[in-house]
Computed example of a mutant assay.
Amino acid sequence: MTEAQLTFDGETDVVIRRRFSHPPEKVWRALTEPALIRQWLSPDLTDCRMDARPSGSFRYDWPEFFFSGPVLDARAPHHMVHVEHFNGDTSQGPTVTTTLAADGTGTRMTVVMRYKDAAARAKAIEQGFTDGIAEVYARIEDIGFPG
């Protein structure tokens, strides 16, 4: 499974699974270091901040919109939980749990995006929040990790 697999679980969850050739430590860096996040998430980011620790927060800005929220739990390099708000709307954002597990010399990543109810998940899908996930995560494979 080198391409991201997206499934819907129950009424509230979006689950993404993908295998990377990089070890968990490097995938963690890709998910938490702003300079690396910019390489795979979007070349259009105008601001990118990530404080990957409990009580930390993140913010990713594009010219027209932003995602931000608190980091609830972080245990490098295997586990992070954060809440993802779209344009500051705290009523609809999912709680996102990311798990990285060693898989040979690579990593198995599982992301569970849990929405508050079926309507919130349906709205997120309708707004395109799940579009392009396979292509975005595929870019992590191409990162040249410094240091």
Rank of each mutant, 00 (worst) to 15 (best):
E33Q: 15
V83S: 08
P23A: 02
A118I: 03
T32S: 03
E11I: 02
E25I: 13
T12N: 15
V14A: 06
R114W: 03
G147L: 14
I16Y: 02
E64F: 10
T2R: 13
T105W: 08
S68Y: 11
R49C: 09
G88S: 03
G106N: 04
A101I: 15
A35Q: 12
E141N: 00
G56L: 02
D44M: 13
V14Q: 12
W62Q: 07
F8D: 14
T130R: 04
I143C: 05
P43L: 09
V111A: 05
A134R: 07
D61P: 08
V112T: 09
P43S: 13
R49D: 14
M1G: 14
H78N: 14
T105P: 11
I140L: 06
G88W: 06
G144H: 15
K116S: 13
R38H: 02
R59I: 00
Q39G: 01
G93E: 01
K116W: 10
D9W: 07
H79C: 00
E3S: 11
P94C: 00
T90W: 08
D131W: 09
D44A: 14
T46P: 06
A124L: 00
T105Y: 09
L31P: 05
R17H: 06
V96A: 05
E11F: 00
T90G: 11
D103K: 04
E3R: 12
G10F: 00
P70N: 11
D73I: 11
F67C: 09
R18H: 12
D131F: 10
L36G: 04
V81D: 01
G56P: 01
A102K: 10
